[in-house]
Amino acid sequence: MSEIEVIFYIEALGNDKKVLERALEETAKNLKDEKGVKIKYINVEDVLKNEDEDFLKYSGVIEAQFSGDLGNIVRLTLKYSPAVVEVLGPGKVEVESKTLMKILGEVSLFMGKLMQKFGGLAVYPKLDDLPEPRIDYSREEIEELIVEDRNILYRFVIEVFGESEEAIKTTMAKALTIEGCRINKLAVQGQEEDSQFKGLLAAELLSSFESLMQLTAKYAPVAISVLEPEIIDITANELQNVLTDLAGFVNELVTRPIKRQIMEKKNTEFKLSP
């Protein structure tokens, strides 16, 4: 697999300048010691103070350029959740389906642990008014979507709960369509528990590489398999979008407690205002 050259811009915020400086230096050291990648440079910028902020008033940035295979680049994106990821090259990489499945499994495991701690990611607008999407495609249509539109055919299984089996199936079909997927097969199995249906949803889907990675990060499937094609080509722009999305998802989850504190502080100030 090709070596991928990237630049991470890792942003950190804090209330104490000295503590933040130590945290940035520690992060830079950890990056330097990472296995499986070749570090070109790591720059730790000076910590700056934002006079307009009372909470998290100090900020700092680490800029790091390094190269590695797709698996290690994705791993470090999840671990360090950079604010910006820039893919310098190559213009396109090719990855075997079995390698991609391993990476998807690691993304699912990592995101699943975060969501157990901080809550879910999959949030949609009201779906009632959306038409029910098409399910089932012919072999000819599937081949055209794979060859002409560079779609990936894959299966994934997620845990679901809701009012009923049919309601879950209808809602998830619409949600998957919003995520940019075409649905070839969709099935739900489970049982009623405490007046609520709980079970598993299995889907066979066609989508772009970007949608596949986003879906994996948002739902943390318990099982996923890439069926076709055997070799997936990924452009630098697609990879950059995916890495930025993954980092954004991680940041959204891990910063929820801090955002909650900020909102509580603002609400308290509002209530105390004359």
Results as ranks from 00 to 15, higher is better:
Glu53Val: 09
Phe55Glu: 05
Phe55His: 03
Leu56Ile: 01
Lys57Phe: 01
Tyr58Cys: 03
Tyr58Gln: 01
Gly60Met: 07
Gly60Thr: 00
Val61Arg: 13
Ile62Met: 02
Ile62Trp: 04
Glu63Trp: 00
Ala64Glu: 03
Ala64Ser: 08
Gln65Ala: 14
Gln65Asp: 00
Gln65Cys: 05
Gln65Pro: 05
Phe66Ser: 02
Phe66Asn: 04
Phe66His: 00
Phe66Tyr: 00
Ser67Leu: 00
Gly68Val: 04
Asp69Ala: 10
Leu70Asp: 00
Leu70Lys: 00
Leu70Trp: 01
Leu70Gln: 03
Gly71Ser: 12
Gly71Pro: 08
Gly71Ala: 06
Gly71Ile: 00
Asn72His: 00
Asn72Ala: 03
Asn72Gly: 09
Asn72Cys: 03
Ile73Met: 03
Ile73Gln: 07
Ile73Cys: 05
Val74Cys: 06
Leu76Ile: 00
Leu76Asp: 04
Ser81Lys: 05
Ser81Asp: 15
Pro82Lys: 06
Ala83Glu: 12
Val85Met: 09
Glu86Ala: 09
Glu86Thr: 00
Glu86Cys: 05
Leu88Ser: 05
Leu88Asp: 02
Leu88Pro: 01
Leu88Gly: 01
Gly89Ile: 06
Gly89Glu: 10
Pro90Trp: 01
Lys92Met: 10
Val93Tyr: 10
Glu94Lys: 15
Glu96Gly: 09
Glu96Ser: 12
Ser97Val: 09
Lys98Ala: 06
Thr99Val: 12
Leu100Phe: 03
Met101Pro: 12
Ile103Asn: 12
Leu104Phe: 14
Leu104Met: 10
Leu104Cys: 12
Gly105Cys: 14
Glu106His: 15
Glu106Thr: 14
Ser108His: 13
Phe110Arg: 14
Met111Leu: 10
Met111Pro: 08
Leu114Lys: 06
Met115Arg: 06
Met115Pro: 07
Lys117Arg: 05
Phe118Gln: 08
Phe118Glu: 05
Phe118Val: 13
Gly119Ser: 07
Gly120Tyr: 04
Leu121Thr: 03
Val123Asp: 09
Lys126Trp: 02
Lys126Gly: 07
Asp128Thr: 09
Asp128Ile: 11
Asp128Arg: 13
Asp129Lys: 12
Asp129Asn: 09
Leu130Cys: 14
Ile135Ser: 08
Asp136Pro: 12
Arg139Asp: 04
Arg139His: 00
Glu140Thr: 10
Glu140Met: 09
Glu141Thr: 04
Ile142Tyr: 11
Ile142Val: 11
Glu143Phe: 13
Glu143Ala: 12
Glu143Gln: 15
Glu143His: 05
Glu144Met: 10
Glu144Tyr: 10
Ile146Trp: 06
Ile146Gly: 11
Val147Thr: 15
Val147Lys: 15
Asp149Ile: 04
Asp149His: 01
Arg150Asp: 14
Asn151Gly: 12
Ile152Glu: 12
Leu153Thr: 07
Tyr154Met: 11
Val157Tyr: 13
Ile158Ala: 08
Ile158Lys: 10
Val160Asp: 04
Val160Asn: 03
Phe161Trp: 13
Phe161Asp: 10
Gly162Gln: 01
Glu163Leu: 15
Ser164Asp: 06
Ser164Gly: 08
